[in-house]
Design a protein around this nucleic acid. Sequence first.
DNA 1: AAGCCTGACAACCGCCTTAGT
DNA 2: CACTAAGGCGGTTGTCAGGCT
Length: 336
Amino acid sequence: MGRSPCCDKAGLKKGPWTPEEDQKLLAYIEEHGHGSWRSLPEKAGLQRCGKSCRLRWTNYLRPDIKRGKFTVQEEQTIIQLHALLGNRWSAIATHLAKRTDNEIKNYWNTHLKKRLVKMGIDPVTHKHKNETLMSSTGQSKSAAATLSHMAQWESARLEAEARLARESKLLHLQHYQNNKAAAPNHCLSHKASSTNWTKPNQGNGEQQLESPTSTVTFSENHHLMIMPSRENNSVPNVTEFALSSSTSSDVKDSDHDWMRQINCPTEGVEEGFTSLLLLGDSGDRSLSTGKKDEETVAGAVEVNESDYSYYEDNKNYWNSILNLVDSTPSDSSTMF
DNA sequence: AAGCCTGACAACCGCCTTAGT
DNA sequence: CACTAAGGCGGTTGTCAGGCT
Protein backbone atom coordinates (compact mmCIF):
# COMPACT_ATOMS: atom_id res chain seq x y z
CA MET A 1 0.00 0.00 0.00
CA GLY A 2 1.54 3.25 -1.10
CA ARG A 3 1.50 6.56 0.64
CA SER A 4 -1.56 8.63 0.02
CA PRO A 5 -1.02 11.66 -2.19
CA CYS A 6 -0.11 14.83 -0.33
CA CYS A 7 -2.97 16.78 -1.82
CA ASP A 8 -5.80 14.27 -1.81
CA LYS A 9 -7.71 16.34 0.67
CA ALA A 10 -10.98 17.58 -0.72
CA GLY A 11 -11.04 21.20 -1.71
CA LEU A 12 -7.41 21.50 -2.63
CA LYS A 13 -6.95 23.11 -5.99
CA LYS A 14 -4.89 21.60 -8.80
CA GLY A 15 -3.84 22.80 -12.21
CA PRO A 16 -2.44 26.12 -13.39
CA TRP A 17 -1.76 28.82 -10.86
CA THR A 18 -3.60 32.12 -11.05
CA PRO A 19 -1.83 35.49 -10.64
CA GLU A 20 -3.69 35.93 -7.35
CA GLU A 21 -2.32 32.66 -6.01
CA ASP A 22 1.17 33.59 -7.17
CA GLN A 23 0.85 36.91 -5.39
CA LYS A 24 -0.26 35.26 -2.17
CA LEU A 25 2.59 32.78 -2.25
CA LEU A 26 5.17 35.41 -3.12
CA ALA A 27 3.96 37.78 -0.43
CA TYR A 28 3.97 35.09 2.21
CA ILE A 29 7.44 33.78 1.40
CA GLU A 30 8.92 37.25 1.13
CA GLU A 31 7.65 38.03 4.59
CA HIS A 32 8.06 34.75 6.43
CA GLY A 33 10.21 32.51 4.26
CA HIS A 34 8.74 29.22 3.19
CA GLY A 35 9.45 27.34 6.41
CA SER A 36 7.53 24.08 6.35
CA TRP A 37 5.96 23.62 2.95
CA ARG A 38 3.37 21.37 4.51
CA SER A 39 1.94 24.12 6.64
CA LEU A 40 2.59 26.99 4.26
CA PRO A 41 -0.59 26.82 2.16
CA GLU A 42 -2.86 27.23 5.16
CA LYS A 43 -0.82 30.08 6.56
CA ALA A 44 -0.64 31.79 3.19
CA GLY A 45 -4.33 31.33 2.54
CA LEU A 46 -3.87 29.02 -0.42
CA GLN A 47 -6.04 26.08 -1.36
CA ARG A 48 -3.02 24.13 -2.57
CA CYS A 49 -0.88 21.35 -1.21
CA GLY A 50 2.57 22.19 0.10
CA LYS A 51 4.24 20.26 -2.64
CA SER A 52 2.46 22.28 -5.28
CA CYS A 53 3.52 25.50 -3.54
CA ARG A 54 7.12 24.39 -3.36
CA LEU A 55 7.15 23.48 -7.04
CA ARG A 56 5.58 26.76 -8.04
CA TRP A 57 8.11 28.65 -5.99
CA THR A 58 11.21 26.76 -7.09
CA ASN A 59 10.29 26.53 -10.75
CA TYR A 60 8.60 29.84 -11.38
CA LEU A 61 8.33 32.44 -8.65
CA ARG A 62 11.81 32.37 -7.17
CA PRO A 63 13.40 35.76 -7.85
CA ASP A 64 16.76 34.33 -8.92
CA ILE A 65 15.35 32.44 -11.87
CA LYS A 66 16.37 33.36 -15.36
CA ARG A 67 13.63 32.83 -17.88
CA GLY A 68 13.46 33.00 -21.62
CA LYS A 69 15.53 31.54 -24.41
CA PHE A 70 18.52 29.41 -23.65
CA THR A 71 21.80 30.78 -24.93
CA VAL A 72 24.18 28.80 -27.11
CA GLN A 73 26.49 28.49 -24.15
CA GLU A 74 23.69 27.11 -22.01
CA GLU A 75 22.69 24.64 -24.70
CA GLN A 76 26.26 23.49 -25.01
CA THR A 77 26.55 23.11 -21.27
CA ILE A 78 23.38 21.05 -21.08
CA ILE A 79 24.42 18.72 -23.89
CA GLN A 80 27.87 18.23 -22.47
CA LEU A 81 26.71 17.66 -18.94
CA HIS A 82 23.99 15.32 -20.08
CA ALA A 83 26.64 13.26 -21.80
CA LEU A 84 28.37 12.93 -18.47
CA LEU A 85 25.54 12.82 -15.99
CA GLY A 86 22.58 11.47 -17.90
CA ASN A 87 19.13 12.53 -16.78
CA ARG A 88 20.34 13.95 -13.49
CA TRP A 89 18.64 17.24 -14.07
CA SER A 90 19.20 18.68 -10.65
CA ALA A 91 22.93 18.01 -10.97
CA ILE A 92 22.96 19.59 -14.40
CA ALA A 93 21.03 22.57 -13.07
CA THR A 94 23.74 23.28 -10.51
CA HIS A 95 26.05 24.06 -13.41
CA LEU A 96 23.62 26.46 -15.06
CA ALA A 97 23.11 29.57 -13.03
CA LYS A 98 19.50 30.61 -12.56
CA ARG A 99 17.98 27.73 -14.51
CA THR A 100 15.77 25.17 -12.81
CA ASP A 101 16.04 21.44 -13.28
CA ASN A 102 12.48 21.36 -14.58
CA GLU A 103 13.23 23.97 -17.20
CA ILE A 104 16.37 22.19 -18.31
CA LYS A 105 14.54 18.88 -18.45
CA ASN A 106 11.78 20.38 -20.56
CA TYR A 107 14.24 22.08 -22.85
CA TRP A 108 16.15 18.87 -23.31
CA ASN A 109 13.04 16.88 -24.11
CA THR A 110 11.55 19.40 -26.50
CA HIS A 111 14.62 20.80 -28.22
CA LEU A 112 17.99 19.26 -27.63
CA LYS A 113 17.05 15.61 -27.69
CA LYS A 114 15.30 16.04 -31.00
CA ARG A 115 18.25 17.87 -32.45
CA LEU A 116 20.58 15.04 -31.53
CA VAL A 117 18.25 12.43 -32.92
CA LYS A 118 17.96 14.44 -36.12
CA MET A 119 21.72 14.29 -36.46
CA GLY A 120 21.81 10.57 -35.91
CA ILE A 121 23.20 10.81 -32.43
CA ASP A 122 21.73 8.71 -29.69
CA PRO A 123 20.59 11.20 -27.03
CA VAL A 124 21.12 8.60 -24.33
CA THR A 125 24.65 7.48 -25.13
CA HIS A 126 25.67 10.60 -27.12
CA LYS A 127 27.23 8.31 -29.67
CA HIS A 128 26.75 8.55 -33.39
CA LYS A 129 24.46 5.81 -34.61
CA ASN A 130 27.14 4.61 -37.02
CA GLU A 131 29.56 4.21 -34.21
CA THR A 132 28.24 0.79 -33.37
CA LEU A 133 29.23 -0.34 -36.85
CA MET A 134 32.76 0.90 -36.22
CA SER A 135 33.02 -0.86 -32.93
CA SER A 136 34.30 -4.04 -34.51
CA THR A 137 37.64 -2.42 -35.32
CA GLY A 138 40.36 -2.54 -32.73
CA GLN A 139 40.96 1.20 -32.76
CA SER A 140 37.31 2.00 -32.23
CA LYS A 141 37.06 -0.48 -29.46
CA SER A 142 40.05 1.01 -27.79
CA ALA A 143 38.75 4.54 -28.30
CA ALA A 144 35.35 3.60 -26.97
CA ALA A 145 36.90 2.05 -23.91
CA THR A 146 39.04 5.12 -23.42
CA LEU A 147 36.09 7.46 -23.72
CA SER A 148 34.00 5.34 -21.46
CA HIS A 149 36.83 5.38 -18.99
CA MET A 150 37.02 9.17 -19.19
CA ALA A 151 33.29 9.53 -18.72
CA GLN A 152 33.32 7.33 -15.66
CA TRP A 153 36.24 9.23 -14.24
CA GLU A 154 34.58 12.55 -14.72
CA SER A 155 31.28 11.33 -13.39
CA ALA A 156 33.07 10.07 -10.34
CA ARG A 157 34.83 13.37 -9.95
CA LEU A 158 31.53 15.19 -9.95
CA GLU A 159 30.21 12.81 -7.35
CA ALA A 160 33.25 13.45 -5.23
CA GLU A 161 32.82 17.19 -5.59
CA ALA A 162 29.23 16.86 -4.53
CA ARG A 163 30.29 15.00 -1.45
CA LEU A 164 32.88 17.61 -0.70
CA ALA A 165 30.33 20.33 -1.12
CA ARG A 166 28.06 18.64 1.34
CA GLU A 167 30.85 18.07 3.80
CA SER A 168 31.98 21.64 3.41
CA LYS A 169 28.48 22.88 4.05
CA LEU A 170 28.32 20.85 7.23
CA LEU A 171 31.67 22.21 8.31
CA HIS A 172 30.51 25.74 7.62
CA LEU A 173 27.36 25.18 9.61
CA GLN A 174 29.35 23.69 12.44
CA HIS A 175 31.68 26.64 12.33
CA TYR A 176 28.72 28.96 12.29
CA GLN A 177 27.15 27.31 15.28
CA ASN A 178 30.42 27.41 17.15
CA ASN A 179 31.04 31.06 16.41
CA LYS A 180 27.45 32.26 16.33
CA ALA A 181 28.29 34.00 13.09
CA ALA A 182 26.20 34.32 9.98
CA ALA A 183 25.93 31.07 8.08
CA PRO A 184 27.23 31.04 4.52
CA ASN A 185 24.49 31.37 2.00
CA HIS A 186 25.54 28.48 -0.14
CA CYS A 187 22.95 26.92 -2.32
CA LEU A 188 24.21 23.42 -2.80
CA SER A 189 21.74 20.99 -4.12
CA HIS A 190 24.00 18.14 -5.01
CA LYS A 191 22.46 14.86 -4.17
CA ALA A 192 24.06 13.53 -1.05
CA SER A 193 25.91 10.31 -1.14
CA SER A 194 25.20 7.58 1.32
CA THR A 195 28.92 7.18 1.92
CA ASN A 196 29.97 8.33 5.35
CA TRP A 197 32.90 10.70 5.14
CA THR A 198 35.14 11.37 8.05
CA LYS A 199 37.54 14.24 8.55
CA PRO A 200 40.73 12.74 9.93
CA ASN A 201 43.05 15.63 9.24
CA GLN A 202 42.72 19.36 9.42
CA GLY A 203 45.05 22.30 9.49
CA ASN A 204 48.16 23.45 7.59
CA GLY A 205 45.96 24.69 4.80
CA GLU A 206 44.91 21.25 3.85
CA GLN A 207 41.82 19.26 4.56
CA GLN A 208 41.35 15.62 3.95
CA LEU A 209 38.15 13.74 3.79
CA GLU A 210 37.90 10.02 3.90
CA SER A 211 35.26 7.55 3.10
CA PRO A 212 35.62 3.88 3.93
CA THR A 213 37.07 3.35 0.48
CA SER A 214 38.54 6.62 -0.61
CA THR A 215 40.33 9.76 0.42
CA VAL A 216 40.19 13.22 -1.04
CA THR A 217 42.68 15.96 -0.39
CA PHE A 218 42.18 19.59 -1.14
CA SER A 219 44.82 22.16 -0.45
CA GLU A 220 45.21 25.93 -0.54
CA ASN A 221 44.59 26.18 -4.25
CA HIS A 222 41.49 24.02 -3.83
CA HIS A 223 42.56 21.68 -6.55
CA LEU A 224 40.77 18.37 -6.46
CA MET A 225 42.71 15.34 -7.52
CA ILE A 226 41.20 11.95 -7.90
CA MET A 227 43.30 8.83 -8.03
CA PRO A 228 42.19 5.32 -8.81
CA SER A 229 42.35 2.69 -6.17
CA ARG A 230 45.34 0.38 -6.52
CA GLU A 231 43.19 -2.64 -5.87
CA ASN A 232 41.26 -2.22 -9.03
CA ASN A 233 42.96 -0.20 -11.69
CA SER A 234 40.81 -1.19 -14.59
CA VAL A 235 37.44 0.41 -14.16
CA PRO A 236 37.12 3.57 -12.09
CA ASN A 237 34.12 2.83 -9.99
CA VAL A 238 33.02 5.63 -7.71
CA THR A 239 33.19 3.42 -4.69
CA GLU A 240 36.68 2.26 -5.50
CA PHE A 241 38.45 5.58 -5.66
CA ALA A 242 41.36 6.53 -3.54
CA LEU A 243 41.72 10.26 -3.77
CA SER A 244 45.16 11.59 -3.10
CA SER A 245 47.48 14.49 -3.80
CA SER A 246 48.99 14.96 -7.21
CA THR A 247 52.47 14.59 -5.82
CA SER A 248 51.87 11.13 -4.57
CA SER A 249 54.72 8.81 -5.41
CA ASP A 250 52.15 6.14 -5.95
CA VAL A 251 51.01 7.71 -9.17
CA LYS A 252 51.61 5.60 -12.21
CA ASP A 253 52.24 6.89 -15.72
CA SER A 254 48.81 5.89 -16.82
CA ASP A 255 47.41 7.91 -13.98
CA HIS A 256 49.34 10.93 -15.13
CA ASP A 257 47.90 10.47 -18.58
CA TRP A 258 44.46 10.58 -17.12
CA MET A 259 45.23 13.62 -15.05
CA ARG A 260 46.49 15.37 -18.12
CA GLN A 261 43.35 14.58 -19.97
CA ILE A 262 41.07 15.62 -17.18
CA ASN A 263 42.88 18.58 -15.73
CA CYS A 264 45.04 19.86 -18.56
CA PRO A 265 43.14 19.49 -21.81
CA THR A 266 45.24 20.05 -24.88
CA GLU A 267 45.56 23.64 -25.85
CA GLY A 268 43.99 24.69 -29.09
CA VAL A 269 41.61 21.82 -29.21
CA GLU A 270 39.47 22.11 -32.29
CA GLU A 271 35.81 22.89 -32.00
CA GLY A 272 34.31 19.91 -30.27
CA PHE A 273 31.58 17.61 -31.38
CA THR A 274 29.10 19.66 -29.46
CA SER A 275 29.91 22.72 -31.48
CA LEU A 276 28.89 20.76 -34.49
CA LEU A 277 25.69 19.82 -32.75
CA LEU A 278 24.96 23.44 -32.19
CA LEU A 279 25.16 24.07 -35.89
CA GLY A 280 21.82 22.42 -36.01
CA ASP A 281 20.14 25.61 -34.93
CA SER A 282 19.31 28.32 -37.38
CA GLY A 283 19.76 31.96 -36.50
CA ASP A 284 22.75 34.11 -35.72
CA ARG A 285 24.86 31.46 -34.09
CA SER A 286 28.49 32.25 -34.55
CA LEU A 287 29.23 28.93 -36.14
CA SER A 288 26.13 28.74 -38.21
CA THR A 289 26.33 29.00 -41.95
CA GLY A 290 22.95 30.65 -41.96
CA LYS A 291 21.37 27.78 -43.82
CA LYS A 292 18.20 26.14 -42.66
CA ASP A 293 18.48 23.55 -39.92
CA GLU A 294 18.48 20.40 -41.96
CA GLU A 295 20.91 21.70 -44.54
CA THR A 296 23.29 22.85 -41.87
CA VAL A 297 23.01 19.64 -39.93
CA ALA A 298 23.62 17.58 -43.01
CA GLY A 299 26.66 19.71 -43.77
CA ALA A 300 28.01 19.26 -40.31
CA VAL A 301 27.64 15.52 -40.48
CA GLU A 302 29.28 15.46 -43.86
CA VAL A 303 32.29 17.33 -42.54
CA ASN A 304 32.51 14.89 -39.65
CA GLU A 305 32.55 11.87 -41.84
CA SER A 306 35.00 13.14 -44.38
CA ASP A 307 37.44 15.13 -42.31
CA TYR A 308 37.56 13.45 -38.96
CA SER A 309 37.50 9.97 -37.66
CA TYR A 310 34.87 9.14 -35.10
CA TYR A 311 37.62 8.83 -32.60
CA GLU A 312 38.73 12.39 -33.20
CA ASP A 313 35.15 13.60 -32.94
CA ASN A 314 34.67 11.88 -29.67
CA LYS A 315 38.01 12.91 -28.31
CA ASN A 316 37.22 16.54 -28.97
CA TYR A 317 33.72 16.08 -27.69
CA TRP A 318 34.91 14.69 -24.40
CA ASN A 319 37.72 17.20 -24.19
CA SER A 320 35.18 19.98 -24.43
CA ILE A 321 33.07 18.30 -21.79
CA LEU A 322 35.98 17.89 -19.47
CA ASN A 323 37.01 21.47 -20.14
CA LEU A 324 33.54 22.58 -19.28
CA VAL A 325 33.33 20.66 -16.07
CA ASP A 326 36.67 22.00 -14.99
CA SER A 327 35.46 25.55 -15.39
CA THR A 328 31.95 25.27 -14.06
CA PRO A 329 30.65 26.79 -10.81
CA SER A 330 31.12 23.41 -9.20
CA ASP A 331 34.78 24.24 -9.05
CA SER A 332 35.77 23.64 -5.49
CA SER A 333 37.29 27.11 -5.19
CA THR A 334 33.80 28.56 -5.25
CA MET A 335 32.74 26.34 -2.43
CA PHE A 336 35.50 26.76 0.04
C1' DA B 1 -13.89 29.31 -40.11
C1' DA B 2 -13.44 24.97 -37.96
C1' DG B 3 -11.06 21.02 -36.76
C1' DC B 4 -6.85 18.73 -36.16
C1' DC B 5 -2.01 18.39 -35.11
C1' DT B 6 2.13 19.62 -32.90
C1' DG B 7 5.28 21.90 -29.86
C1' DA B 8 6.23 24.04 -25.57
C1' DC B 9 6.07 24.22 -20.90
C1' DA B 10 3.73 24.18 -16.39
C1' DA B 11 2.25 21.07 -13.13
C1' DC B 12 1.40 16.58 -11.15
C1' DC B 13 2.59 11.88 -9.56
C1' DG B 14 5.10 8.43 -7.43
C1' DC B 15 9.31 6.95 -5.69
C1' DC B 16 13.48 7.72 -3.09
C1' DT B 17 16.30 9.97 0.37
C1' DT B 18 16.97 12.41 4.47
C1' DA B 19 16.12 14.16 8.98
C1' DG B 20 13.84 13.87 13.19
C1' DT B 21 12.06 11.17 16.98
C1' DC C 1 17.39 0.62 14.93
C1' DA C 2 12.81 1.41 13.23
C1' DC C 3 9.42 4.37 11.91
C1' DT C 4 7.45 8.52 9.94
C1' DA C 5 7.06 13.04 7.83
C1' DA C 6 8.84 16.10 4.67
C1' DG C 7 11.60 17.39 0.90
C1' DG C 8 13.66 16.37 -3.52
C1' DC C 9 13.97 14.26 -7.96
C1' DG C 10 12.81 12.47 -12.48
C1' DG C 11 9.19 10.78 -15.44
C1' DT C 12 4.90 11.79 -17.24
C1' DT C 13 0.67 14.20 -18.18
C1' DG C 14 -2.31 18.22 -19.02
C1' DT C 15 -3.12 22.49 -21.06
C1' DC C 16 -2.69 26.00 -24.25
C1' DA C 17 -1.14 28.47 -28.28
C1' DG C 18 0.06 28.51 -32.95
C1' DG C 19 0.29 26.43 -37.44
C1' DC C 20 -1.66 23.66 -40.98
C1' DT C 21 -5.25 21.55 -43.80
